[in-house]
């Protein structure tokens, strides 16, 4: 039977072999220390291969995966976060944060009024926290040239 543990075990073994191979490529320094920068990674790779082999041979029960609809929401959230990261510079902090926080809270609890309030509260609250708590002086509230 194909269990996700077996697949994952194989992936681990392949990754570990790649890791070992890439460790073997490392240039040893001219000090030519026999242990050097290689041996520790190689040892790690061997242990990981062994662990992967045990997973292939003796897999656990099937893992529980989230519903496809949940994965879709997750994908939307990730895309939103990436867009958010790019929007910060040109649009300032408040507007993108309002949209992103509102959208994220909508994905979890779809209640429009609540989501709008959450977006407003979070964008202002987090701005104060980051600007003064974390001391991010470069943080811009609104886009450059908007009177601020």
């Amino acid at each position: 039977m194909l269990r996700s543990d077996r697949v994952f075990g194989l992936v681990v073994i392949l990754a570990a072999l790649a890791y070992i191979a890439s460790a073997l490529q490392l240039q040893t320094s001219f000090l030519s220390d026999p242990m050097g920068s290689k041996s520790f990674p190689i040892g790690l790779g061997i242990v990981a291969v062994l662990c992967g082999a045990v997973m292939v041979l003796k897999p656990d029960d099937e893992a529980e995966w989230p519903q496809p609809s949940a994965l879709l929401k997750l994908a939307i959230a990730v895309v939103a976060m990436i867009a958010y990261a790019y929007a910060l510079k040109p649009l300032g902090f408040l507007l993108p944060t309002f949209i992103a926080a509102g959208l994220l809270s909508f994905l979890i609890t779809p209640r429009i009024v609540f989501n709008v309030l959450a977006g407003i509260g979070l964008s202002v609250g987090l701005y104060v926290l980051f600007r003064y708590g974390l001391g991010l002086e470069t943080l811009q509230a609104i886009p450059k040239g908007w009177g601020g």
Partner: peptide, 20 residues
């Protein structure tokens, strides 16, 4: 605290905390 707010707060703290 509703999960919706919590998720956004934690995510925000995580992103800007790491950045800082």
């Amino acid at each position: 605290v509703p999960n919706a707010v919590m998720a956004a707060v934690v995510l925000g703290l995580a992103v800007f905390g790491s950045y800082s």
